[in-house]
Amino acid sequence: MAQVLLFGRLADQAGWREREVEAPSLDALRAAIGLADPMLGEALAAPGVQVAVDKAIVRGEAALSPASEVAFLPPMSGG
């Protein structure tokens, strides 16, 4: 199972920071999370949310292995 990590407001909204999810791809992972928690699914698909698979930023689809680590990173702000 892929290890899913949530950071910042995404973790606050979900009520968890780390969880294992069974999914063969990033799209399937997002769908599984969205099915379990539709509001979190929407938040993960929001503009500015980045995804890292095995510590590399990914844009678009990616295959996952049972050992994959998937991190969802909220938009950053600063000043």
Rank of each mutant, 00 (worst) to 15 (best):
A67T: 13
L44N: 07
A31R: 15
G41F: 02
A36W: 02
L64T: 08
P66C: 06
A63Q: 15
A36D: 10
F7Q: 07
A11P: 09
L26V: 04
R17F: 03
A11W: 00
G48C: 15
L35R: 10
Q13T: 12
D54C: 11
V53L: 01
A28S: 04
V53S: 06
A11G: 14
Q13S: 02
A52G: 05
P38D: 01
S65Y: 06
A14N: 04
M39P: 12
L35S: 09
G41I: 12
E22I: 06
G15E: 01
F72N: 02
S77M: 04
E42W: 10
E69G: 15
D37M: 11
W16V: 13
I33S: 05
P47M: 07
A32S: 08
E42P: 09
S68P: 02
E18F: 00
R30D: 05
D54L: 11
F7T: 03
P24D: 06
L26K: 09
E22F: 01
V21K: 11
W16K: 07
D27P: 15
S65W: 11
L40H: 00
G15I: 01
Q13P: 03
A31M: 13
A14M: 06
G34T: 11
R17T: 13
M76G: 14
E18N: 08
R17V: 03
L40T: 02
A56D: 11
D12I: 01
Q13Y: 01
M1I: 10
A2M: 09
S68A: 12
A63M: 14
V53D: 00
L29A: 03
V51F: 08
L64G: 02
G78I: 01
G60R: 14
E22S: 12
A28M: 04
E18W: 00
S77I: 00
F7A: 07
A14G: 08
F7R: 05
I33Y: 00
R19S: 13
P38T: 04
V51M: 06
A62F: 09
E18R: 08
L35K: 14
V70K: 08
E20R: 15
A36K: 15
A11H: 05
Q50F: 07
E20M: 10
P24I: 04
A56M: 12
V53K: 04
L5S: 12
P24S: 08
P38L: 02
